[in-house]
Design a protein around this nucleic acid. Structure first.
Length: 364
DNA sequence: TCTGGGGTCCTAGGACCC
DNA sequence: TCTGGGGTCCTAGGACCC
């Protein structure tokens, strides 16, 4: 069986910053908008391992992070830069694997032409070194003939490690891990499992099929098979590299508002920005969704499939404003909560005709 | 005390069609 | 006057991931 490797960058955004400022190597660095700025309604995007010692994690509210780690060094996020570096990582990985499937900005699955654990281990060590030397970035690598096990192994290897799991060791490797280590089992599902007495993957392996079906629905059988060390075809295969399904922009307001005019203005700007992004990728959209997050943090959305695909900002803008107006009017008739965040999303993509050539020429 | 900005996939009900 | 079964599409909501 050929091995699959997962390469997962460690504290990615922080590492991108530290390679430009090596003096911060072992400092408690946090990427996020510092809590001193008046509009600091945000969360930590990435925390260095030194900062994690203080109990700071990514996705933690910045105020809470600042309390836990007052000496933290805050660096404002530069997402375009992290995107560019991600491209360099992919290019480098492509020279070392049969196929590279990017899974997120800091993670990729690779198909290897190797069938034994020792050569895979050596391969992983050389790739890790290459990433460190050429790009100055630390990574963790997991390997297994089963895709999902390779992913779990890369998590287990963090930070800076390599974990290769031969197929016959799969069950023993998974057994002691918390159920939450399985991708797809999040906080809600983990809590339900916990209450039913399933804490580790090993316990899931011994659970009855009926009990697991009740707790996990249609995932039950594949989770059960994984827990017993024999992943299903679907979980074992390398994920496919399909094009994007949707693109969206989200903006959290500096202050909650009930002002429809303010929200419409915001959507006008967002429609312009989003249509520009789609044009760069040569995509036409046929569906639009507006989502509002209310002050109580719940969300409501309104969307529409268009009769035909469109490009440019005009349709995106007028439809977004109509959908948002619907949402606001309904809210006014009911609870009248203020708006905290506005999201605009476009999807159901079709390739753009005609102009694509021009874009390719411009890129060349 | 507060909770970002991207994404993916699944479910469930209703409309509609054969 | 009463009314099956199967399929697809659309819409809203929710869980989950990085």
């Amino acid at each position: 069986m050929r091995y699959i490797a997962y390469v997962d960058m460690d504290a990615y955004y922080v590492s991108c910053e530290i390679r430009e400022r090596p003096e911060l190597e072992d400092a408690p660095v946090l990427v996020g908008r510092a809590p001193t700025s008046p509009e600091a309604r945000g969360v930590v995007l990435s925390a260095s391992y030194a900062a994690r010692k203080f109990g700071v994690r990514s996705a933690m509210p910045v105020l809470q992070a600042a309390r836990r780690c007052p000496q933290a060094i805050w660096i404002p996020p530069d997402l375009p830069k992290y995107g560019r570096i991600a491209g360099e990582i992919r290019d480098l990985l492509a020279t070392r694997a049969e196929r590279v499937i990017p899974l997120s900005i800091d993670e990729a699955a690779l198909e290897l032409d190797l069938e034994d654990p020792e050569p895979v281990r050596a391969w992983a060590a050389s790739v890790q070194e290459l990433l460190k030397e050429r790009l100055g970035l630390p990574s963790s690598i997991g390997g297994s003939p089963y895709s999902i096990v390779a992913k779990i192994a890369s998590d287990a290897a963090k930070p800076g490690g390599i974990r290769i799991v031969p197929p016959e060791e799969t069950r023993a490797f998974l057994e002691p891990l918390p159920a939450r280590a399985i991708p797809g089992i999040g906080p809600k599902t983990a809590q339900r499992l916990d209450q039913a007495g399933f804490h580790t993957v090993g316990e899931l392996a011994t659970g009855s099929t009926e009990t697991l079906r009740r707790l996990l629905g249609r995932y039950a059988d594949s989770v059960h098979a994984l827990a017993r060390g024999t992943p299903s075809q679907e979980m074992g295969r390398l994920p496919e590299d399909r094009g994007p399904r949707q693109h969206s922009l989200d903006r959290t307001l500096a202050h909650d508002t009930r002002d429809a005019t303010e929200i419409r203005q915001m959507l006008t700007e967002m429609a312009g920005e989003l249509s520009g992004l789609l044009a760069q990728e040569g995509l036409r959209y046929q569906s639009i969704v507006v989502r509002l997050r209310w002050e109580d943090f719940s969300q409501t959305q309104r969307g529409r499939q268009l009769p035909a695909s469109h490009e440019g900002a005009a349709m995106l803008e007028s439809e977004a404003i109509r959908l948002a107006t619907d949402l606001l009017e309904r809210e006014r008739g009911e609870r009248d909560r203020a708006v905290r965040r506005v999201s605009l999303s476009a999807g159901s993509f079709a390739p753009r005709r005609g102009r694509q050539t021009l874009l390719d020429e411009a890129a060349a």
